[in-house]
């Protein structure tokens, strides 16, 4: 089930690429269930110009269960764990529906970056605190700094 669906999704991605996702491919040839993706930082945000590598671990019962998606490029965002790359997104947990695919999920992650996130359930306390205290200039500067440090020109 998972493999059949993944092949269809990869085919659809190749014939109609997503503006948010620069690369989506299996991490190595023999294994469809582990993929690598490159997500583009959304334009007109502090993530602009960044290219973020993510890994996608697809469970064997996919699409009944969601893929496990993590940032490999450090990403400074209140709902992304800076060290492990874990993402706090309801879509990847309780709100998963088999009618989403990998691309639409990655687009939702990009959406999470451009929306600024929710500082009330933070994975990244530093940037969340700045946002909660209303220091949006500081928060944006921090994001821009880390984006430039880790996600530029890779």
């Amino acid at each position: 089930m998972a493999a059949k669906r993944l092949i269809k999704e990869l085919d659809a991605y190749h014939s109609d690429p997503s503006p948010a996702v620069a690369i989506l491919q299996p991490a190595d040839d023999g294994d469809l269930l582990h993929l690598t993706a490159v997500l583009l930082g959304p334009q007109e945000t502090a993530y602009e110009g960044g290219t973020f590598t993510l890994t996608l671990a697809v469970p064997p019962n996919y699409p009944a269960a969601p893929p496990d998606i993590r940032f490999r490029t450090p990403c400074c965002h209140p709902n992304v764990n800076f060290k492990t790359g874990e993402i706090c997104l309801d879509l990847l947990k309780g709100s998963w529906t088999p009618a989403y695919g990998l691309i639409s999920t990655l687009e939702a992650v990009q959406q999470l970056l451009s929306a600024g996130g929710n500082p009330d359930s933070p994975y990244n306390l530093d940037v969340a605190r700045l946002m909660r205290e209303g220091d949006l200039v500081g928060a944006e500067a921090l994001v821009r700094f880390y984006t430039r440090l880790y996600a530029w020109g890779r």
């Binding site: 269809k8 659809a12 009618a99 695919g101």
Partner: peptide
């Protein structure tokens, strides 16, 4: 806006 290739299995 649902993708046919995704919903057709269901």
């Amino acid at each position: 806006g649902f993708d046919p290739f995704i919903y057709e299995d269901f």
